[in-house]
């Protein structure tokens, strides 16, 4: 009888642990999706600002047609990336960031454009959006790290394999950003 109760208790314990591990994986995956939503919101905000920017710059710097067209094409390409294609999305977004940097550098040659309040406002909003994108990326990559650790480490890897939990992709930064941006800090008091 005692042996039977012991086995029962052991099974119950294993069951509880299994449930905790499973729920942990579900929660981690959900957090990755949530963090991706956060990035998406900021990217959409950037998409919305770009047409205004192109229109403003065209009015003052028509000669920079090439750069403006590159920006418009980069935006369209990024918006066309299907959902779930993280690496492709990262590459497309990096192309937009690169073109924006080029455009703002070129704007230095047009004092009238620089003095335009509309352009200044767009520049400020885009700079803020870039910062939010960078921060959202860090948060997303932090959540992905946690998810991947759970998927790979014992004993949660057993539960992960059984229920089809897989490693998530990082939202890779371009080389320039990789130098400056660290992972989301793991705070240890």
């Amino acid at each position: 009888m005692n042996f039977f109760l012991f086995i029962l208790g052991l099974v119950a314990l294993v069951g509880v642990i299994y449930t905790i591990l499973y729920n942990g994986l579900v929660s981690a995956r959900q957090k990755v999706k949530e963090a991706w939503s956060g990035i998406d919101v900021q990217l959409k905000r950037r998409y919305d600002l770009i047409p205004n920017l192109v229109k403003t710059v065209k009015g003052y710097a028509a000669h920079e047609k090439g750069t403006l067209e590159s920006l418009t094409q980069a935006r369209a390409a990024a918006m066309a990336v299907p959902k779930g294609h993280i690496a492709e999305k990262a590459s497309a977004e990096n192309a937009i960031s690169g073109t924006l940097k080029t455009l703002f550098a070129l704007a230095e040659n047009y004092p009238d454009l620089k003095a335009s309040s509309n352009f200044h406002e767009l520049q400020v909003q885009l700079a803020e959006t870039e910062d939010q994108i960078a921060s959202s990326r860090r948060i997303y990559n932090g959540n992905v790290t946690e998810m991947n650790v759970k998927v790979e480490s014992f004993p949660s890897n057993i539960v992960a394999k059984k229920h089809g939990f897989t490693k998530e992709e990082f939202f890779d930064l371009d080389e320039g950003e990789k130098e400056g941006v660290k992972n989301v800090p793991q705070v240890k008091f």
Partner: peptide, 12 residues
């Protein structure tokens, strides 16, 4: 927002 969260973590 993400920018605020990341900075608060840096402060911590």
């Amino acid at each position: 927002s993400p920018s605020v969260q990341v900075r608060l973590l840096e402060i911590a």
